[in-house]
Nucleic acid binder design. Structure first.
Lengths: 335, 335
DNA sequence: CTGAAAGCGCTTACAG
DNA sequence: CTGAAAGCGCTTACAG
């Protein structure tokens, strides 16, 4: 039942009284064709409502016109912005993105990448993830790959990273300049390179300001709302004193904000809060969140562009994208 | 540069000393094969690291093993939950979802659907959208389609809708039972069927309670944060009196909440607020949002399942999914 | 400019 | 059980 007869190039050729080769040439603008034939082919195409079979084209040309994209969670508020950027960069190029999710599991990521390769994608984009470098290098032997969130050098592979350490430094430094010295860091998931880099930036800012690091102030926020909520609850339960929180991402900042709200602590009057990412929703938290903006959309767009260049063997564009502190209303001077 | 030589089925056949047909049969378990040949083929596959070309399989079998999914915005917090449900339902079936975005523009949606058809997807899922019914019915002549957010009857097409009117009724009724009579409705985008149904539910609840409808209380929230923010600001500027807000979706509720915050109005002490959708983030707003839960994830999963059944001509599962009021902390009795 | 032919990498009746 | 052959719907050297 699945098949309604689709019209094929051969039928068009017959209807127009020309050879299939000619139809193909007209379709692809791949050679000069007499006006008469062109016209009759175009008429036949219109009359039959012919649309080329992209799969068949792919098989014949040796390229699928699809770009595989490994994200971690299709519904992630952060990465979905990057997906949007990828969509945008691919629009009008003939390439379609094929999205798969790895869920931060190295094995699942590897399986999903294999699935992309099985479908003969013309290039692969990997949005961070836990998949080991070697696996990436190995797949780059079959197909060009562009990966974000790590530094890596290999043939047919290009890695784009942002300076998370610098972003975290700027955020922490901002709080210090405001007068805070008891600054909590809601750390990200252990093992994530981003989480490590952000912690390092926090530490560097403290050290530079001559503020001794207090291990009690570095807690696990798990990169999500619930992690932030639990961590701040625990801090409050243990009567740890602090005047500011630097969260490793906006989601954990939002969780922290709710914990404070529940205890009757005001932001920023009682506690200052700074996040990381600048999710679309962070503009509308109460109060709007001061945060480090990661250009997720632009990152997606750039990564896709770079991959296209890599596929066509063209010289690559510049790869630098800035992190920037966005000052809104959630941080102020200590009470 | 794009092509590292990939090993083909023919090479496997040669290496194993059998015909290509046999290799294919073993790959697909489509016929009995002698143990000896099976073994040598399996060895050859392992030795050559052979992976079938899914595109070529698709061409030969007349099915692409991909399901086209038209969403409106890949980064929408609501629809991305449905995408996740679709992913989940398709996992392990051999089908891969191909996501495209229509951006609430009927023409773009039609173009994107055409793109899916060009790629010979085996089925199409349309997550609401503005594309007209006829267009959907026409594409159903080429490929099975499952569409959400509307009611429609046609061959090879199945429509799944939720009862938005009932959900809105429940929300409004809840506020009325709490004692509110001056209830603002932050309406959704004009022309969206969902928006109309939710407005209707609001009206029915008022009418049933004998509360006269005040046109000044029905304002445009545009289904997004900024719309909710602007609308509530305008209400406050014009000194319209109200004690509660029923927003047509959570995003506009969040914007409304920020407007109230900025004016120093407390939620729920001064103004009660109820949303619609139950986005993942609504659990973490301050205060956590009372809202009507739309089972977005389950909807995506069900839609994908139904489509698979349609493709295989199997009897369809039940299509009902409930809306439910989730009571959290943003609504209370009027001051 | 244009057609016949071979080929892309598979599958699947058709014979044995 | 298994192979040779034809076919899926295109593209692209190769000749004219």
């Amino acid at each position: 039942m699945n098949d309604r007869p689709t019209t094929t190039l051969d039928q068009v050729a017959r209807a127009a009284g020309v050879s299939p080769s000619t139809v193909s040439r007209i379709l692809n603008g791949t050679a000069r064709v007499s006006e008469a034939k062109r016209r009759s082919v175009e008429e036949a195409i219109a009359a039959l409502d012919y649309r080329p079979n992209v799969l068949a084209q792919g098989l014949a040309r040796g390229r699928s016109l699809t770009i595989g994209v490994l994200t971690q969670d299709i519904a992630s508020p952060f990465y979905s912005e990057s997906l949007k950027g990828i969509e945008e960069a691919l629009a009008g190029t003939g390439y379609a993105p094929l999205f798969v999710s790895g869920h931060w599991d190295a094995e699942e990521e590897a399986r999903k990448v294999a699935l992309l390769v099985d479908r003969r994608v013309d290039g692969v984009i990997v949005l961070t993830g836990m998949i080991p470098d070697d696996a990436l290098i190995a797949t780059a032997e079959r197909v060009p790959v562009a990966v974000t969130g790590r530094t890596l050098n290999a043939p047919r592979l290009i890695a784009i990273d942002l300076d998370h350490e610098a972003g975290a430094y700027a955020a922490t430094r901002y709080l210090i300049d405001l007068g805070h010295t008891r600054i909590v860091h809601l750390a990200g998931v252990q093992g994530h390179a981003d989480a490590r880099a952000r912690l390092a930036g926090y530490r560097r800012a403290l050290a530079e300001a001559g503020i001794a690091e207090d291990p009690a102030l570095i807690v696990d926020g798990q990169f999500n709302e619930n992690g932030g909520l639990d961590a701040v609850n625990a801090l409050l339960d243990h009567r740890v004193s602090f005047t500011a929180i630097f969260a490793a991402n906006d989601q954990s900042a939002v969780g922290a904000r709710l914990a404070l709200y529940r205890r009757g602590l005001r932001v920023p009057d009682d506690v200052s809060l700074v996040g990381f990412d600048d999710l679309p929703g962070s503009l509308y938290t109460t109060p709007p969140l001061t945060t480090v903006r990661q250009p997720a959309y632009e990152l997606g767009r750039l990564t896709a562009r770079v991959l296209l260049h890599l596929i066509d063997n063209r010289p690559l564009p510049a790869l630098d994208l800035p992190m920037s502190l966005i000052v809104r209303d959630s941080a102020g001077e200590p009470a």
